[in-house]
Design a protein around this nucleic acid. Structure first.
Length: 752
DNA sequence: GTTCTAGAAC
DNA sequence: GTTCTAGAAC
């Protein structure tokens, strides 16, 4: 162990030394112990590793919530059992294990001896970390190192380390990890950390080991957040893909990500400056702090959306009417977006729409801190006017000015298929000037209605329809912004993986299909969806076929059930019942609507409630019939796919065994076991209350594979299927409510 | 070598 | 929606 410099405080006066407490955070199997080992092995600084083994952590946690129910008790026993099998791993010779209290006391002693401390326990949420943040008082810096790997990976690692004795243990390791996943809560500077390092791949971990391993007894590290954080399991797949594609060069030069500065209280000076060698690190501390302060002062950390008035220029929407709608929608949304702000932007001081909106907003007493009007070029608000807006809206009928070309590259594919009233959120690549120069992290493309006879799809003077579409456009826009705000202004990787960007783009679209001002589609055209394409220069109409020829089968059956007696089970006036050609469970049937023009749930409105109720009743009746015939089926669900592959509105009635050779991939599973599947009862309720159905994004289709009963995560479809064949856990509470799950005892949820 | 995924074609 | 298949993962 190194001796202290002469001018340094003596080790016994622990509070005066530069000791730090590094709180590791990660699921079992994320590599916390390995991290500690490496740091301690290479460090000249005295370290103590405080390790609380899994067993006691689990008990600690369980004892914090007095769980009297049987399930809790059984889980406890299971975890206890597993913990014994993991014990050998997480307790090493010089690690100190015990209860959380013992950990705290060991850590306190170590600090008094002048040692820095590594807290090697999962520390998965704020509650678990809070006591460790008090260690050594305010003079001891607390750091967090987050080993943020997907649950799937941690499970497979845990399985391996316990694994040689067979699958059983692996399964239990999965149970423990799964138990923790929902509780995961990433650390924030506001909890009291001086520095947080997020690691998402081995390279990040290695860099972080170097940083701490090379930290001499008197060195300190810059404060702030380092590395990218992945807030949510939903992006894990994308991250995993991304990690595989990272070029060594692109990682070596990770740039400061401006978007990180947008996270309130979490200002990052960027990875590089944070991961310098030790000697430089201490020199840099002062500079880094200064930069941080500057950044904090310069950037208003409140998420802000700058948006132009939609449809009022080239599309000639009446300004009075438009301003009413803007104010109405702004008023509706200011209450829904927390601290975030909305700014209506126009180029000229003479802008009529700006003054109209301004006056009306004042009349309505809309909080001027949350909504304002602003004159400027929306693509240069920060560089020219010092107004920092992290999200800007692009009314999709006009081009973002020169410099917008880079935007086109990133967003073209998606923005091309916007229909009026809808919006598309596109995260910007970090290479984009809008990102680097203006600090814009997302662009939301939005298309409004056209009232200009010189432009395609003119609504003429139909302001009933026009106003409806303009309201919808603002709703889509603000909902898109709201989702960005809620996602915590996610930090996007600096990697220019367009596929990743494409996956990240999502559409705010309550009704994908646009039925324009033209007369109803001719029968021959009814096979096609009307999708307007917006080329770079001008708006033009282009009819794009989106239902492939293979997607017509249900439509044909609904129209002519008499020609398909081999699959049709029942034909009624308004519905046809048929066997699914590729059943994903022992029993899987479809109830088709016979109405022409109802392609999917997106086309359904309040007037279709009675049809949907009768579809539900017919489906329910068949489910009961199947349950009576075969008690082992136990449960059914009735619901719709948010974005079905096959045309013609159809209700799935499916037994919950999912025991079928046709269930082959992630999409199959997730289309029935994520919010992509909307229960029939919820559809009817929402239609009744709101008049439309909120569709779920198809990102759910690529989410990790979770058991529909116990919610455990599984690495691939075969493993998932093996698990569900024996999982007897009760269904999640939400499914047991409101008649979502139909069982043989249940004969009460007919729709009246 | 085998298993599994995911994208293209239909 | 499925099938086919390259190539990644194991």
């Amino acid at each position: 162990m190194e001796t202290m410099e002469i001018d340094s405080p003596t080790p016994s006066s622990g509070e005066e030394t530069k000791a730090i407490v590094v709180i590791l955070m990660g699921l079992p199997g994320s590599g916390k112990s390995t991290f500690c080992d490496h740091v301690m092995r290479s460090s000249s600084r005295p370290w103590a590793r405080i390790c609380q083994n899994m067993l006691l952590q689990v008990f600690d946690e369980m004892s914090q919530r007095v769980s009297s129910d049987l399930v809790g008790f059984i889980t406890l026993l299971r975890l206890f059992d597993l913990s014994l099998t993991l014990l050998h791993h997480d307790t090493i010779n010089n690690g100190k294990s015990g209860t959380k209290l013992q950990c705290l006391s060991s850590a306190t002693s170590a600090l008094k001896e002048g040692k820095s401390v590594l807290i090697d326990r999962c520390n998965i949420n704020k509650e678990q970390r809070v006591d460790f943040l008090k260690l050594g008082g305010t003079k001891v810096e607390k750091h967090a190192v987050v080993l943020d790997f997907p649950a799937k990976l941690c499970i497979s690692r845990s399985v391996k380390r316990t694994g040689h004795e067979g699958n059983l243990q692996g399964g239990k390791a999965a149970a423990v990890v799964n138990q923790m996943v929902p509780k995961k809560e990433l650390p924030k500077l506001t909890e009291g950390f001086a520095r947080i390092t997020f690691c998402q791949d081995e390279k990040d971990v290695k860099e972080s080991i170097n940083v701490y391993g090379l930290l001499g007894p008197l060195d300190s590290l810059p404060s702030g957040c380092f590395g990218n954080k992945n807030s949510d399991t939903k992006t894990q797949l994308g991250i995993m893909k991304f990690l595989k594609k990272v070029e060594p060069s692109s990682n070596a030069g990770s740039e400061p990500t401006i978007s990180q500065k947008l996270i309130p209280n979490e200002i990052s000076p960027g990875k590089d400056s944070g991961l310098q060698g030790t000697k430089k690190a201490s020199d840099l501390t002062g500079v880094a702090h200064k930069k941080l302060e500057e950044a904090a002062a310069a950037s208003d950390n409140i998420p802000t959306l700058a948006f132009p008035s939609i449809s009022t220029s080239d599309f000639q929407f009446n300004l009075e009417k438009a301003s009413d709608i803007i104010v109405e929608k702004v008023e509706e949304f200011v209450g829904k977006i927390g601290k975030a702000k909305l700014v209506l932007v126009d180029l000229s001081h003479k802008s009529k729409i700006l003054s109209l909106v301004k006056t009306k907003a004042e009349q309505k007493n809309i909080d001027s801190h949350k909504f304002s009007t602003f004159v400027g070029d929306i693509t240069r608000l920060r560089s020219q006017k010092g107004l920092h807006c992290n999200v800007i809206a692009n009314a999709a009928n006009w081009r973002l000015k020169p410099g917008g070309s880079e935007l086109d590259i990133a967003t073209k594919e998606k923005a091309d298929c916007l229909s009026p009233g809808n919006a598309l959120v596109v995260p910007l690549p970090s290479s984009s000037p809008l990102f680097t120069r203006e600090g814009v992290t997302h662009v939301i493309h939005v298309l409004g209605p056209n009232m200009n006879p010189q432009r395609p799809d003119c609504l003429k003077d139909d302001y009933v329809h026009g106003s409806e579409l303009l309201r919808k456009a603002y709703t889509s826009l603000f909902e898109g912004f709201s989702s960005i705000v809620k996602s915590g202004t996610e930090v996007h990787s600096t990697n220019d993986d367009h596929k990743l960007k494409r996956e990240a783009a999502y559409e705010f679209d309550m009704n994908k299909k646009y039925k324009g001002c033209e007369k109803d589609p001719q029968p021959g055209l009814s096979d096609f969806r009307d999708v307007r394409k917006i080329p770079d220069e001008k708006v033009s109409l282009e009819t794009t076929k989106t239902w492939g020829s293979w997607a017509q089968a249900l439509y044909n059956i609904a129209m002519h059930p008499e020609n398909h007696t081999n699959v049709v089970l029942e034909t009624l006036d308004d519905v046809v019942v048929m066997n699914d050609a590729y059943p994903k469970a022992k029993r899987h049937i479809l109830v088709l609507a016979r109405a022409n023009g109802l392609d999917s749930i997106a086309d359904v409105h309040r007037e279709h409630i009675s049809l949907l109720k009768s579809m539900h009743d017919v489906g329910f009746k068949w489910a009961q019939k199947f349950l009576n015939e075969d008690k082992s089926l136990s449960f059914f669900r009735l619901g719709y796919h948010s974005a079905p592959s096959m045309r013609q509105l159809h209700l799935h009635v499916i037994s919950q065994d999912f025991d079928s050779g046709h269930l082959k991939n992630k999409k199959h599973w997730n289309s029935f076991n994520t919010p992509f599947f909307i229960d029939s009862v919820d559809v009817i309720k929402e239609l009744d209350e709101v008049g439309k159905v909120t569709l779920k994004n198809d990102k759910f289709l690529s989410m990790e594979l979770r058991c529909h009963r116990c919610k455990s995560v599984h690495p691939n479809v075969p493993r998932l299927k093996a698990h569900i064949s024996s999982c007897q856990a009760s269904f999640p509470a939400a499914l047991l409510q409101n008649g979502r799950l139909v069982s043989s005892e249940d004969n009460t949820n007919f729709c009246e």
